[in-house]
Design a protein around this nucleic acid. Structure first.
Length: 283
DNA sequence: GGCCAGGTCCAAT
DNA sequence: ATTGGACATGGC
């Protein structure tokens, strides 16, 4: 038994595969998604979503179907330099992740890459998360902060120097740090998050954007730095702070969306303008 | 094999 | 207030 949900201006694939979220697997045109306690299956045909394992309110919230994406795209499109990125990923929406999972995932993301982040997160879920089933598909929940093993056991899962950060973060989350974030201003929330070891500007902005719906957050990572310097700073290196200030002034409340389109587009485009593609090293 | 990865932290300017 | 290196591991 499944429910159907109308989701105009939504592209399931772009939304899940754009690198903001790591808890999904694809099987043909269907996806299994694990978000907090919830495991659901979703498939898109045109503007219709077929969903098993979640109700329409959950889906609407998770995929931010309440965002006026048509309006957002229209507004961002006034910037010509953004158009290629907007055109490449129509229907890409920001996901509303579980705060703790998001915090953990982006601590894990430090100096890593998407396949490895995905693997690290899955390893943690498999090791300490409760088993959950949907039909004959099974998955594991991501462990709550109190359910983690020691720093040492995290190191055994190959988390490297991130193990210590994650261990400390779990303790802070256990004491309720994430619960107070929604009531704070964006700057105060950022400050509060940055108390967590392993959470500085970039990771804090990811958490604000991907878990708390602060659409003005603009995480500056290596890809965003590269594409922003290329598009808006004449190729001249500037501090990340300057990039964030620019984004804030130019896009305001929509900076987060601009960021995710640019990030996805920039990654697909590859490392242009930093180094020319390498020719075959030897004939 | 060295460089770099959805960075952060700490020490030394 | 800025800057360089260390930090684990892995992929190219």
């Amino acid at each position: 038994m499944s429910i159907r949900i109308q989701a105009p201006r939504f592209d399931l694939r772009h939304t899940l595969e754009c690198g903001q979220f790591f808890r999904w697997t694809r099987h043909g045109d269907a996806f299994h998604v694990q978000r907090g306690r919830r495991l659901f299956r979703v498939r898109q045909t045109g503007v219709t979503l077929d969903v098993q394992g979640a109700d329409r309110w959950f889906i609407r919230d998770f995929f931010s179907l309440d965002h006026d994406l048509a309006g957002i795209e229209h507004s961002l499109r006034r910037d010509p330099r953004l158009r290629p990125a907007l055109d490449a990923y129509p229907g890409l929406r920001l996901i509303r992740q579980d705060p703790w999972e998001c915090t953990a995932a982006f601590i894990i993301s430090i100096a890593s890459n998407i396949p490895r982040i995905t693997r690290n997160v899955a390893d943690i879920a498999r090791t300490w998360g409760r088993r959950i089933a949907l039909g004959d598909f099974t998955s594991n929940e991501f462990p709550r902060p109190g359910e983690f093993g020691s720093e040492e056991s995290l190191r055994r899962l190959r988390l490297g120097f991130r193990a210590r950060y994650l261990d400390r973060a779990a303790r802070l989350a256990e004491s309720g740090l994430l619960e107070e974030i929604p009531s704070l201003s964006c700057e105060d929330a950022r400050e509060a998050l940055m108390v967590i070891p392993g959470v500085a500007e970039k990771v804090a902005d990811c958490i604000l954007l991907f878990a708390f719906g602060r659409l003005e957050a603009f995480p500056v990572d290596t890809w965003i730095r590269r594409v922003m310097i290329d598009l808006y700073f004449h190729g001249r290196r500037v501090p990340d702070r300057a990039i964030r200030a620019f984004a804030s002034e130019r896009w305001g409340d929509l900076a987060g969306y601009a960021q995710q389109y640019l990030y996805t587009w920039s990654r697909a485009r590859g490392r242009v303008s930093v180094r020319a593609p390498r020719a075959a090293s030897r004939a």
